[in-house]
Design a protein around this nucleic acid. Structure first.
Lengths: 215, 215
DNA sequence: TTCCCCGATTGACAATTGTCAAGCGGTCGG
DNA sequence: CCGACCGCTTGACAATTGTCAATCGGGGAA
């Protein structure tokens, strides 16, 4: 990407630090800014008819609502800070201009979008093909892998949000945790300990076509 | 898009006609061809642990598995013809080359991918925020709109596939259909008649952020 | 036409998941 | 240190959804 174009992009940009639990964007609004998370975490969520569900957690360094920015369409999800977060705000207009003018940038956007698309497809498969216990088991295995294979790691999310992300109620999550104990899972507070990886994997049956978020 | 690049693209391409119920691609395989449906319909579906779910129905004229082709990654979904279908097969390598060389093409790909991404996000919201009856009601309203506002139209899909697409069993779909009768829905075979649009809409509460597939 | 096949429907029942209410326990501010 | 608050857990129960088996009924082949 050319330096000129890069400058076009950052000229109107600004960085801002937000405290936790701040609503950054509201679904349905028009996409005025592309957001880039530099530090902290952001939760994407959606509402309908008085219900709310957690859609994703965004961690540094990635963008969110890229698709809405490119299409100049309304946001499909709301976003709020989960922890204190530093975020770059890039005016959507600038992003679309550079996107039109700079083909390297356009290709980078494609790669990012393809990644996001595949991630959501995996989420849908996870929801439709698995029970809540299976979703929890595979979620734990994914975090186990993300923690570098550690058998003990922390849930990075509040349990209520995890429950919503996994598509269940907090009560149901509590019970699912207990139900996984026979398969070698101990969860105390936010600490997860896998005492029998083989049993858990046999129960969870992870699949790269659902659980590998890197491809 | 330049004529040269277009020729690069169609040089290795070929069109093929498939009978119904032919498996076109299998999830997990590498993306050798970008597929374009010219006529007929194709069903995208996924499997895990002996279960199967219908993910989408592709109608002319659109592509499928664009993301896998661009990323040179394995297919996340399998595809089979639902009806007899004519399909263009474009070698993925050619698509990636033209994508690298032709920025107009790259931008077109972005727009298409952004569209697909947003469609899957809407599907996920539909699944997580609505009960099966609500999903059916909104599915009917979407088809009602797609039929140009006609109050009587045909289900374009077998009920077993519709059930799978909506994330329920065929038995549950039968019951959901009966449960919508008080809201002015009559379904006889593949024919849907909406006798009380206002009641149905009040029950379904359609939202453009979930049900409008055009934005 | 008649029969067969297969998908749709129905009923009875089971499993899963959600709801409501109560109680527990950790954290944080005074 | 104490108490209030808030999220988590637990139990009892209800609603939703799935499973299994039987039956219905329409379309296609002989």
């Amino acid at each position: 990407m050319s330096e000129d174009r890069f400058n076009d992009l950052i000229r109107g940009a600004y960085v801002q630090t937000f405290p936790p639990q701040v609503e950054l964007i509201t679904e349905g609004d028009t996409a005025d800014f592309l957001h880039v998370v530099l530090s902290g975490t952001v939760e994407l969520y959606s509402s309908w008819n008085g219900r709310e569900t957690s859609m994703a957690t965004v961690r540094p360094i990635s963008t969110f609502i890229l698709a809405a920015t490119i299409k100049d369409a309304p946001y499909l999800m709301s976003a709020r800070t989960a922890e204190k977060a530093r975020i770059i705000l890039l005016p959507s207009l600038d992003v679309r201009n550079v996107f039109e003018a700079d083909s390297d940038f356009a290709r980078a956007v494609v790669t990012e979008l393809a990644q996001c698309y595949r991630a959501v497809v995996k989420t849908t498969k996870n929801l439709k093909l698995r029970t809540s216990q299976e979703r929890l088991a595979n979620y734990l295995l994914r975090n186990h892998r993300r923690a570098g294979g550690a058998l003990e790691f922390d849930l990075q999310v509040e349990k209520r949000r995890l429950a919503s992300f996994l598509g269940m109620t907090p009560e149901n999550l509590s019970r699912a945790i207990k139900a996984l104990r026979p398969y070698g899972v101990e969860i105390d507070g936010a600490t997860v300990r896998i005492t029998n990886l083989a049993d858990l994997e046999q129960f969870a049956r992870p699949s790269p076509l659902i659980d590998d978020y890197t491809t």
